[in-house]
């Protein structure tokens, strides 16, 4: 197996204390490898986003250790955190929330180049890189310059997000429900671009979703999360076609299908 890029042991997140205590993530272990596409699947409130935020270093870890590229992660200073973020990036469900509304599109992309140590490059080179990144996601850079994020359509914003990743070339990409609430065709476009981006950049992708069909289609391996715990993990075929946990079985049973009948009986009891 290829090298581990991100792993964790006993990762736990507790919010609040006393009566108000919520264990959002409860002693989870994981080991993600280079170029792997991993999905984390679970229902609303199962702790997916909380885990993502801990992996990104946006939330403190209550208990447990995270290892990045084989070494224990250290993000104790601002500088170390910035260094870590060169290796791990995220895209979220709501594309509008990921941008600073007051920064023009070109400066959003320019920041990515600077972050990758390209600040000193000649301007023509930078424009060439931004044009390439936009072309990669079927956007025209010339049409975006001087525009603000809110002047783009939802679909353009989503593609811009992927253009950013193309420039940042992180080792790991965390994608938290980036395709929910969009139509199947546009979803296919985004998935296509993400997979191409992975092949081009050579990154590993952690895909967060509650759509078990989607997880089955795109992933190498799948982790199933229930109430903050991983109840099952393995290759996509193993987990989806031969689930062992009752929770996984229920998720698969309850999702509408097109070949097998959608069985009402079991869930409704």
């Amino acid at each position: 197996m290829s090298d581990s890029v991100l792993s964790g042991k006993g990762i736990t997140k507790v919010f609040g204390f006393g009566d108000k205590k919520t264990i959002a993530v409860d002693h989870v272990d994981f080991d993600f490898h280079e170029r792997e596409l991993v999905s984390i699947v679970g229902e609303s409130g199962s702790g997916k986003t909380t885990l993502v935020k801990m992996l990104l270093g946006l939330l403190s870890v209550t208990e447990g250790d995270i290892y990045f590229m084989g070494k224990k992660r250290d993000i104790s200073t601002r500088g170390k955190k910035r260094e870590y973020w060169k290796g791990i990036q995220a895209i979220f469900q709501d594309p509008f929330s990921s941008y600073n509304m007051f920064h023009k599109i070109d400066s959003v992309l320019l920041d990515c180049i600077n972050m990758r140590g390209g600040a000193g490059l000649p301007r023509s080179k930078k424009i060439e890189m931004m044009t390439e990144a936009c072309g990669f996601v079927n956007l025209k850079f010339a049409e975006l310059t001087n525009k603000y994020p809110f002047e783009l359509s939802g679909g353009q914003m989503q593609r811009l997000m992927i253009a950013r990743i193309f420039l940042l070339k992180p080792k790991i990409l965390l994608a938290d429900e980036p395709t929910s609430m969009i139509d199947a065709c546009s979803r296919a476009t985004i998935l296509d671009m993400l997979l191409q981006c992975r092949d081009e950049v050579g990154m590993m992708i952690i895909f967060i979703t509650h759509d078990i069909g989607l997880a089955y289609y795109i992933s190498d391996s799948v982790y199933i999360m229930e109430h903050g715990k991983f109840v099952e993990h393995g290759s996509a075929d193993d987990v989806i076609l031969n689930p062992s946990a009752d929770y996984t079985k229920r998720l698969i049973n309850d999702v509408p299908k097109i070949h097998a009948p959608w069985d009402f009986g079991k869930a409704l009891g």
């Binding site: 199947a184 065709c185 296509d192 759509d211």
Partner: peptide, 25 residues
């Protein structure tokens, strides 16, 4: 046709056939 080709379900065999996105907007 493009829309129906984008259907994703957790059913055996559906993983092997690649999605083809419709280019453009």
């Amino acid at each position: 046709k493009g829309l129906m080709d984008s259907i994703i379900v957790p059913e055996e065999g559906t993983r092997d056939a690649k999605l083809t996105a419709i280019p453009g907007t």
